[in-house]
Design a protein around this nucleic acid. Structure first.
Lengths: 139, 139
DNA sequence: ACTCTAACTGAAAATTATTTTCGATAAGAG
DNA sequence: CTCTTATCGAAAATAATTTTCAGTTAGAGT
């Protein structure tokens, strides 16, 4: 996956050293990372990278659907490279590793049912699963 | 619903003026409220109510499943009196009103599918819908 | 009812996550 | 190569929440 640079450019944004560093960190990550973690690792690729820029870059990547935001208990967020088409994540409670998946027809029919039951017109949802990943189950 | 006092007592907690005030605020609320809003209204019932106590009480109520936490864009949380058995909420984007609903079989089969697809052993989920409530659709 | 103790309280201070400000820098169009 | 403007990073500001701590109070035991 290298066409993120085109996505940026086509959307009118520049491809900068900082953004390259953040993308590289996300590409190499095994688990979703907090902005603080992205900063720490990103400085390995770009020594003067700043925390503010990390926040701004992560926001931008989420906006362009290149990255996804994970909600964690404790209020702080983590970010993950987005797999196209898979908008939700299962997060391992032990090691933190995450896999994305598609909501699929189950969500579609859930939404239909709730629309019928409540008369709300539903236009978005927040869904995230938590569990134990295969590796962590073995020990 | 008045047996929240028994729930507290049975769990080893005390029924205090502050807790009564917070519960009363939640019972009278039309929409999920932020801690700040709970404080403001709660002072009408208990003049010296403090913000710290509001936070602590809301945490406690969530722990005892008497209240539910709503995630909002922008990072701050809101709280809602829990309807028994209905663990998820649809939140209106315009007026903020919320209704709880049960995940039901759609979630069960989604979880089964994802367990099969990913080999994760899933033991929890975060699900929240957003939309427009019937009242707000009309104008 | 009265006492007594641990649970609870609220103000102030501390912490944590995130955003704003602003002068300096650098991407990339021409 | 130049020049415009997006972007950068440090410091300060803000917002949400938590910790600390000395004083208060619920309610179990008498």
């Amino acid at each position: 996956m290298v066409n993120w640079k085109r996505r940026l450019t086509q959307a009118g944004y520049r491809v900068t050293t900082s953004r390259r560093a953040v993308m590289r960190v996300l590409e190499e990550a095994e688990t979703p990372l907090t902005p603080e973690q992205v900063l720490e690792r990103g400085r390995g690729h770009h020594g003067t990278l700043g925390l503010v820029t990390v926040y701004r870059t992560l926001d931008l990547l989420v906006e362009l659907r290149l990255a996804r935001l994970i909600h964690r208990r404790g209020g702080c967020h983590a970010y993950l490279l987005a797999s196209p088409g898979h908008h939700h994540a299962v997060v391992c409670q032990r090691c933190g590793r995450a896999i994305e998946f598609a909501g699929g027809e189950e969500i579609d029919s859930l939404v239909e049912r709730i629309e019928a039951q409540t008369d709300y017109q539903i236009d978005g949802h927040l869904l995230q699963l938590s569990g134990i990943c295969p590796d962590c189950q073995c020990k």
